[in-house]
Amino acid sequence: MLQTHETPGRNTTAGANDKQYLFFSGFAYLGMHRDQLFLQYLVEGLGKYGSLYPSSRIANVQLHLYDEIEHALCGMLYQQAAACFSSGYLASQAAIAFAHTKGQVLYAPGTHPSLQQTPILPSSANFGDWLQTEVDKINAEPGTSYVIVADTVSPLTATINDFSALANVQQKTWVLLDDSHGFGLLGENGEGIISQLPLNDHIQYLVAASLSKAYSAEGGVVAGPAAAIAAIKRLPHFSASTPMMPANAYAFLQAMPLYNQARKRLRENCAAFAAQINSLQNIRFNPLLSIFLLNDLANATPVYDYLLEHDVLISSFSYPSPDSPKINRAVISAVHEANDLALLSRLLLQYYQSM
């Protein structure tokens, strides 16, 4: 494990000697956390609102800024209403608490811990097969209410889950999705997975997401039908928790043009890098994502160590728990430049073709 004394951007210094590395890790996909104009918006927000809003979201005096960001978020996610939280994890916990009031919860394989009230058993089942089995189960039991719970994107496997089987649901069903790694990235306007989901009158969708993954704003959101969001706002997860930092909400609202520009750069970077390493069988990726999984070669230096020797730092750790298998990932962001991508691809070509 390396220690750093700064928040990484395109580069970072780390280790005992503060060596500089080209940084291909983390989850700030659009790179806003190091964007000077975005940081200026944060400073403006701090000046206008201070470091926090010192009251409950259900207090007798309400900060209008929260209404503004929730209105923006429900529009971005194509939903009737939204509730914002201080973190994506808290947003997901509120969403799953609500889900448990609506029926028997069916957890997809690989569901993130933030969507779990109690730990679920690990499963290696194929997502598409699992979903079709659950749809058949729902249709065969019209007297039972069900809630399907799943992640939309797995950053550990660089996959986007296929929800097409939901078109066949014939009973009233809730579907709760964590779109933390899709919102801001997928879809024509960064709306996330929602535009790819089947339209089905039997289904009510509820979307939870972190605002940090793409947008570099500490906060979270749950969006869905107005009645569901009203019920979630009555839960202690919302009413008894500290609200989202107002400066983050302010910066988020001001930065929409920046997000759009960064999303375009990110897509260009991913397309360029994918073309450069497309011939390598040991790298797995989805062209719509900026996550590239790197396999170690047998009887060779681990790819993480090889890249580190060449001053390139990738993601390599066990997740979501310390006991999980270690995963090597190169994460492309909007802040990377053409020379960065060329260097990384050249090193990977050397590693996989010459060792």
Rank of each mutant, 00 (worst) to 15 (best):
I193S: 03
I193E: 00
Q196W: 06
L197V: 05
L197Y: 01
P198A: 04
P198H: 09
L199M: 03
L199R: 14
L199E: 13
L199W: 12
L199F: 07
N200K: 07
N200M: 04
N200S: 05
D201Y: 10
H202W: 09
I203H: 00
Q204P: 01
L206D: 00
V207G: 00
A208P: 02
A208H: 10
A208L: 03
A209D: 06
L211W: 02
L211F: 04
K213C: 02
Y215W: 09
E218R: 01
E218V: 05
G219L: 03
G220F: 00
V221P: 00
V222I: 06
A223E: 03
A226Q: 14
A227I: 09
A228T: 03
I229K: 06
A230M: 09
A230D: 10
K233L: 15
K233R: 15
L235H: 11
P236W: 07
P236G: 08
F238N: 11
S239I: 10
A240M: 08
S241Y: 03
T242C: 02
T242E: 02
P243G: 06
M244A: 07
M245K: 09
P246F: 11
P246Y: 15
P246S: 12
A247D: 03
N248Q: 14
A249M: 07
A249F: 04
A249G: 15
Y250R: 01
Y250T: 06
A251P: 01
F252L: 13
F252T: 00
L253D: 08
L253E: 06
L253M: 08
Q254I: 03
Q254M: 05
Q254W: 02
Q254C: 03
Q254D: 01
A255N: 01
A255P: 00
M256V: 15
P257K: 15
P257C: 07
P257E: 15
L258E: 04
Y259L: 14
N260I: 15
N260E: 15
Q261E: 11
A262C: 14
A262W: 06
A262D: 09
R263H: 11
K264V: 12
R265V: 00
R265C: 04
L266R: 00
R267K: 13
E268K: 11
N269A: 13
A271Y: 08
F273S: 13
A274G: 06
A274N: 06
A275S: 13
Q276G: 07
I277A: 05
I277L: 10
N278M: 08
S279K: 12
L280T: 08
L280F: 08
L280S: 12
Q281D: 15
N282K: 14
I283H: 03
I283N: 00
R284Y: 14
R284N: 14
R284W: 05
R284D: 13
F285S: 10
N286K: 12
P287A: 10
P287R: 13
P287W: 11
L288F: 12
L288V: 03
S290W: 01
I291K: 11
F292D: 02
F292W: 02
L293M: 09
L293H: 08
L294A: 01
N295S: 10
A298M: 11
A298C: 05
A300R: 12
T301A: 05
T301R: 05
T301P: 02
T301M: 14
P302W: 08
P302N: 10
Y304C: 15
Y304W: 14
Y306M: 11
Y306D: 07
Y306R: 02
L307Q: 03
L307T: 12
L308I: 11
L308W: 04
L308S: 04
E309V: 14
E309S: 08
E309F: 10
E309R: 07
D311C: 03
